[in-house]
Structures are given as C-alpha cells and as structure tokens.
C-alpha cells in the first residue's frame, strides 16, 4: 500500500517531559485514519509535528517520500499538508467570508498582488461562499469571526482547511465543543470528502462511535508511544487498548 506520510523514530521533549516518544508510523494514502488516546497521550503534539508547528527533537518525517523534517509550516501547507486546530484559531476581527477568502487566495497563489482591488478576484469570494454553504455557515458570512459561537468557529476552521484543497487533511477534534445537533452536519462534510476518495484524512477524536464506522484504520497513542494500529474492529477487541483507556496500564516512565 502507498503511504502519504511516514514518521521515523519521531520524538519531542518539552524539558524533561517526552510528549511524543520514538513514534514510527505510516499513514496510507487516500484512507481515513483515526488517532485516539487518553488525554495527554500526545495526539495534538503529534499533529503539530506533522504540520510543522513544532520541530522534533529527534527523528524524521517523510511526506510523499520526501524528507520534510526541516520545512516550515508554510512550506508544508504549500506541499499539501493542511490542518485544523483543536483550539480555535481564526482571524478574530475579520468577517467569516474574509477568513475563508484568505485561504482561497493562498490556494490560488495570489500573494504579492498589490495593484488591484481584492474584489477584482470575484471568483475567490464565490468559492469561499460555496465552502461556507458546505459547512452550513452561509448566513453568517458577514459576521465578524470573534462573534461566532464556538461550534460555528469550528465550522469556519473546516471551511478554511477545505479551501486549501490539500491532499492530506489533519483534523484535530473537529466536532469538539459543537452542539449535538451540529455534529451530524460536520460528519456529513467529512464523509463526503472521504467518499470522493482522493484525499487522506487523519482525525483526532474522542467520540468512539463516530470514528468506528468512518475509519479505515485506528491508531492508539498512549504516553507518546504507539500502542496499536489496526482496523477499528480489531482495536475494540484489543486488550492493551482497553486497559489503557480504563487506566489499568502503567508506563514504567510515568509511574
């Protein structure tokens, strides 16, 4: 099977605390991978390493066979690694439409044009609007992002990520903080992307029932280490995973 991104002995330590501990994983192309694990297992740190927000203390990352360990987050986005953030991370004082429009503009590679009015690029706005409709946010297009409810900000995050049209989507708890009625709509969006079959999705999630029927494979992280990587049904049966979640398992280092 072809792999889109691989890590080799990836580690990062914050002071004495090793958040991700020699992690070697391969993520298959155009598949849906879920990452689960108890709080503090290093899931978000793992994402930060993949997307370039953090530099590893050790180890390497390969994207489509190329070593990207030393590349900045900007370069990685341009290569096709897009991510959403667990803590909402948007442009607070800009309108919802402008937030998405900036992402579209970046994807169209209009970066240093300073002679024309930005409205000249009408199609950017139209595309941004389409994305907002996709995540059910079109009525809020003219609101300032800071005034959105938490769940709406999450949806905005997803629209911005989709605007980048990256091959690899890293979704960090996309439905966290959303009201229950909103979750199905977002799942629907994720499902649609998955059905197209031309993108690789990696998802961090706590809601087990949500990931089980979506995922092609599940990775379990525990204390920064890979505990298991298997199909969803196998993971459910896995004794070590169960004990990790129920608190029976103790890492020698953390005890």
């Amino acid at each position: 099977m072809e792999h889109i991104i691989e890590t080799n002995n990836l580690s990062i330590a914050f002071g004495g605390h090793v958040a991700v501990d020699s992690l070697s994983v391969k993520i298959p192309k155009n598949k849906f991978t879920s990452v689960i694990g108890p709080n503090g297992a290093g899931k978000t740190t793992f994402f930060n390493l993949l997307s370039g927000q953090l530099r590893p203390t050790n180890g390497e990352i390969f994207y489509k066979g190329e070593n990207i360990t030393k590349k900045s987050s900007t370069e990685r986005t341009r290569m096709g690694i897009g991510r959403s953030f667990q803590i909402t991370n948007v442009f607070p004082n800009l309108t919802v439409l402008e937030n998405v429009r900036l992402a579209v503009q970046s994807n169209e590679k209009i970066r240093y044009q300073m002679m024309f009015h930005f409205k000249k690029y009408k199609k950017f706005e139209e595309k941004a609007m389409e994305l907002l409709e996709l995540v059910l946010l079109e009525t809020k297009a003219d609101s300032v992002a800071i005034n959105l409810a938490h769940g709406e900000k999450r949806k905005l995050e997803i629209a911005m990520l989709l605007a980048l049209e990256t091959d690899l989507l890293l979704l960090d708890e996309p439905t966290a903080g959303m009201s229950l009625e909103e979750v199905p709509a977002i799942l629907e969006v994720i499902k649609k992307i998955k059905e197209k079959g031309d993108r690789t999705i990696v998802l961090i999630e706590h809601k087990m029932d949500m990931i089980l029927d979506l995922s092609d494979q599940v990775m379990v992280l525990f204390n920064g280490q890979l505990l298991a990587q298997d199909s969803p049904s196998e993971i459910m049966e896995n004794k070590t995973v169960q004990s990790a979640y129920l608190g029976g398992l103790h890492d020698e280092n953390s005890a």
Binding site: P92, L102, M114, H117
Partner: peptide
C-alpha cells in the same frame, strides 16, 4: 484593499494562522 493588503491584515490578526494558510 489589494490581495497583499488583506494578507497584511491577516498577519496582524493571527501570524501563526497566516503561516499555516501557506
């Protein structure tokens, strides 16, 4: 009001996010 100008505002609002948009 140019595309460049809008990116400047994005930088003011959230540098890290502007970077992760590419």
């Amino acid at each position: 009001n140019s595309p460049l100008g809008r990116v400047l505002v994005a930088i003011r609002e959230n540098e890290q996010r502007t970077m992760s948009l590419g």
